[in-house]
Amino acid sequence: MVILLEDVGKSYELDGKRLVVLDGVSAQIGQGEFVSLIGPSGCGKSTLFNIICGLAEPDRGKVLFNGREGVGAGEVVSYMPQKDLLLPWRSLLDNVILAREVDGVSRKEARREARELMSLFGLAGFENSYPSELSGGMRQRAALMRTVLARRPVLLLDEPFGALDAITRTRMQLWLLEIWANFRQAIFFVTHDIDEALLLSGRVYVLTPRPARVALHLKVDLPGPRSAEIITTPRFLELKKTIMEALLK
């Protein structure tokens, strides 16, 4: 077990009233797993990620890392938010090594490590380019590379492909599966897209509208390696119907 969430609750004060965002969410992400979290807009998915990262404290419940409390989130998780947040004054190469530099690795060594992976991430030849010179898909690849290079056991990916066009998004989804197969870090993936969740994941948690609870925990028993064609198979459509029904309850 890498991350265990036990009965996590969170609320905020808004205009003098208590707004409950998470109401007893429990989930787990095991070593090397790909798990997706899906739910309606505003249900608290990003709030849950903030709690896992240590950016917010739960009102109740526990977040356990490797079965223990008191372990710093920075030792376990690397977080990629919805926006790529590349630094405009740094080259692509120097953007992707940022986490390694923060960990105390020399810039020379971090650059060497990154250069070895540029082809795998589809960024070879663009090392000296700046974010403004890159396409949306390339910026997301760079942001994911930075997240992977942090070398944490779990990647938290918060709708990383939400702003991309449909064709680029499909390509990025299949590419992400290749990256996951190479590195085998656990991935906890937030999405609004049922097809995306099923294409990528081994398990899916479905949240209710706010205040969020787990409405469904679904094992995705689809064969691998996955391809875009799998979304037309009878079993995929059955699983999609199951998730849709849980979302519409």
Score class of each variant (00 low, 15 high):
K241E: 15
L55G: 06
L199K: 03
F65C: 09
S41T: 13
L248Q: 14
V214S: 06
E238V: 07
L239V: 09
L199D: 11
A110E: 03
D103K: 14
E245S: 15
R90C: 01
V148C: 07
V71P: 09
D7F: 02
I187K: 08
D15K: 14
A181P: 01
R112I: 02
L149Y: 04
A99Y: 02
E238C: 09
A197R: 09
V206Y: 11
Q173C: 12
W89P: 06
L156P: 09
M172E: 05
A56P: 00
E229L: 04
L123P: 08
T168N: 15
P211K: 09
V190G: 06
L222V: 01
G44V: 00
L85D: 12
D23G: 02
A110I: 06
I51N: 02
Q185E: 12
M145L: 07
V2N: 14
I194Q: 04
A163T: 07
F183K: 04
L176P: 11
E238A: 10
P131E: 08
L64Q: 09
M145P: 05
R213Y: 04
D15S: 13
A215D: 10
L176E: 12
W175C: 02
P88W: 00
E127M: 05
D165F: 07
L248A: 14
G9V: 05
L117T: 05
E33D: 03
I167G: 04
K62Y: 12
F49V: 04
E127D: 01
A150H: 06
L4A: 13
P88L: 08
V190M: 08
K219I: 12
D103M: 13
A212F: 05
K62N: 15
K17T: 14
I3D: 07
N50K: 14
M172P: 08
S106I: 07
R235S: 05
P160G: 10
L48S: 07
F65H: 07
G125D: 05
G162E: 05
E238Y: 05
R111K: 14
H192E: 07
E133R: 02
L239W: 10
